[in-house]
Design a protein around this nucleic acid. Sequence first.
DNA 1: CTTAATCGGAGCGATCTGCTCCGTTAGGAA
DNA 2: TTCCTAACGGAGCAGATCGCTCCGATTAAG
Lengths: 213, 213
Amino acid sequence: MSTPGEGRRGRQAEAARNDLRLLEAAHEVFTTQGFDAPVSAIARRAGVGMGSLYRRYRTKEELLQRLCLIAMERVVSAAEDGLAHVDPWEGLAQYVRTCVGFGSGALAPVAGTIEVTEEMGATARRATDMAGRLVGRAHEAGVLRDDVTVLDVSLLIEQFSRPAPGPPSERHQTVKRRLLAIALDGLRAPGATPLPDDPPDLDWYEGRWRTGT
Amino acid sequence: MSTPGEGRRGRQAEAARNDLRLLEAAHEVFTTQGFDAPVSAIARRAGVGMGSLYRRYRTKEELLQRLCLIAMERVVSAAEDGLAHVDPWEGLAQYVRTCVGFGSGALAPVAGTIEVTEEMGATARRATDMAGRLVGRAHEAGVLRDDVTVLDVSLLIEQFSRPAPGPPSERHQTVKRRLLAIALDGLRAPGATPLPDDPPDLDWYEGRWRTGT
DNA sequence: CTTAATCGGAGCGATCTGCTCCGTTAGGAA
DNA sequence: TTCCTAACGGAGCAGATCGCTCCGATTAAG
């Protein structure tokens, strides 16, 4: 991780700062207001003019793609941290908490509406691979109920990533932490009752991102 | 429950049928596409003309209000069914499953954007009262972890009511059932770890519906 | 001071929305 | 069968909103 604007001065430093604030603002606006939120709202929240925004991202879709990529990279990073944990359960739990914490799955609704770049695809594959290892390790250690699959965990994160309505507040964050703690307790082995229905299908899970066709 | 169009024939029967299809379509469109979804989309999905829609609901807000009221009434009904169950835990679990099943909390995002009618307020109060009894009974029976409050349960339902992106599919329903089963397991006493933060606040919970101010 | 890069935001054309209005359709009484 | 009228579907209007462009103002660097 490098501090943005590092080594830059004056106008270039401002540009780098703007870039960061833009990404944060975009993430917040898109995840709380939906993807058809006006671009101007993002610029306003970032305290930046429309000109500065469109100089960095030639189109709204390009901004969305960058946002998705960043989210995926954060997921990979969270998985690495989880894997680094000695306790298989704590590692998994921390991974889930982190992902929900920054709303990694909040961008999922764009699936199918934007083109998936090469880089996005690669990062996504890496992310699911890491998550698989995290879950596999927990399974082997017997700390995760064995009728749960990686996809269940991923979709749980996605469900908890869905933003609360209205302006984002600290209140919502604490509520989510409580609910997530409940769900995590339910994730530990063994389950009181076996899970209903069939586990999610990988093809379907990935296929949601395929555009059109 | 009375069959719509009961005792009516011909054109009046069609009108009653249309009314029902309209409400179903509106619920589906609003919860999956957001509340700024075009009214025409609802009419199309219901197989009904704009004229027929606006003859029954003079405005979009009125339709939304009716929808919220119906959802609340279904919650009350689900709570009654749960209370009728002899097993306190099964009663609560069934209540939660039912509410999530028809997305009782999916309309929550309109909070603050529409005026709350007298009838809505009364029904909401009745609903929270019933839910409180359901949770209280489970607590007394010792089948629900005691650091969980009614509001936790309500907010859990709300979180799970948030719709999956894209066209609604049976796949999503089964996924949700699995995730909900996990969460319900985590709800049983005693929790592996105490819940973090403070329990949700009632004033805040209800206050979300207060418009403007 | 000059220069050139970067800034913020007003405004353009296209799109889309809530809602109205009206010609058409089809029950039901005579 | 014939006519009346209640209920129907959807084209279209006026206004709002959107993505994006363009340009005058601003300011670091030489």
